[in-house]
């Protein structure tokens, strides 16, 4: 299978005053298309930092990140924005919805940034909300919805632009067990249906069951890569 993301010799060092903290050290990873990955690690292991680097939110101190053969570590802010808009979807632990906007408006926002005409973006946002089972909540604001519903909206927003890679940072961290499984079924279901690459960051072993490949991170290095068959 074709690699969509290739990481080679990635190093990330944070400076805390005069002290240097090595968050990631010599990471070499490949992510293939149409597969589901789980980056597993305890808090402070550097798993979130890794996700931020791949998503172009942070720059590595050393090493290369190839996304479809593009060196995103060299991108400037504007190129990164364009890159995220085109290829990347995000699901956050804390949903990060706009509290003043309705579900429909939240979901159609990425399409607004992509200059999609209003009629089309409303149609696509509606469809997306229907896919996540929120057709009755279209005009509700986040404050009028439960945590699970809000995360569904956030998932719909992540997928609405039909990105090639979806990043999910502890997507179920704020949800109960039942909702967690519902959410994981939903998110992996859509990703598989659309042949998208899904990269989930979590500390929850149960979630890693959904992944094709589990990457264990410990103290900033890759500890183990487990492929499921």
């Amino acid at each position: 299978m074709k690699n969509i993301i290739e990481l080679s010799a990635i190093k990330k060092i944070y400076k805390m005053g005069s002290e240097k903290i090595v968050a990631l050290n010599n990471i070499n990873l490949n992510f293939e298309q149409n597969k589901i990955y789980c980056i597993l690690g305890t808090s402070g292991s550097g798993k979130s930092t890794l996700l931020n680097l791949i998503a172009g939110l942070e720059k590595p101190s050393a090493g290369q990140i190839l996304f479809k053969n593009m060196h995103i570590e060299n991108f400037n802010e504007e190129q990164l924005a364009e890159f995220r808009k085109k290829y990347i979807g995000f699901v956050f632990q804390s949903y990060n919805l706009f509290p003043t906007m309705t579900a429909l408006e939240n979901v159609s926002l990425p399409l607004v940034f992509s200059r999609v005409p209003k009629k089309i973006r409303i149609k696509r946002a509606r469809e997306m909300l229907k896919n996540v089972g929120l057709e009755n909540r279209i005009n509700h604001k986040p404050s009028q919805m439960s945590g699970g519903q809000q995360q569904r909206v956030s998932i719909a927003r992540a997928f609405v632009n039909n990105p090639q890679v979806i990043f999910a940072d502890e997507p179920t961290g704020n949800l109960d067990t039942k909702t967690t499984f519902e959410m994981m079924d939903l998110i992996t279901g859509i990703a598989r249906k659309n042949n998208q690459t899904l990269i989930i960051v979590t500390h929850d072993l149960e979630i890693s069951d959904y992944a094709d490949t589990i990457i264990h991170i410990r103290d900033g290095v890759v500890d183990e890569i487990k492929n499921k068959e």
């Binding site: 504007e78 808009k85 995000f90 990060n96 926002l109 990425p110 940034f113 632009n161």
Partner: peptide, 16 residues
């Protein structure tokens, strides 16, 4: 601040 961050992450350019 947070709103601006989210907008950036979901694809808003700095010009936007």
């Amino acid at each position: 601040t947070r709103e601006i961050g989210i907008m950036k992450v979901i694809g808003a350019s700095i010009y936007d």
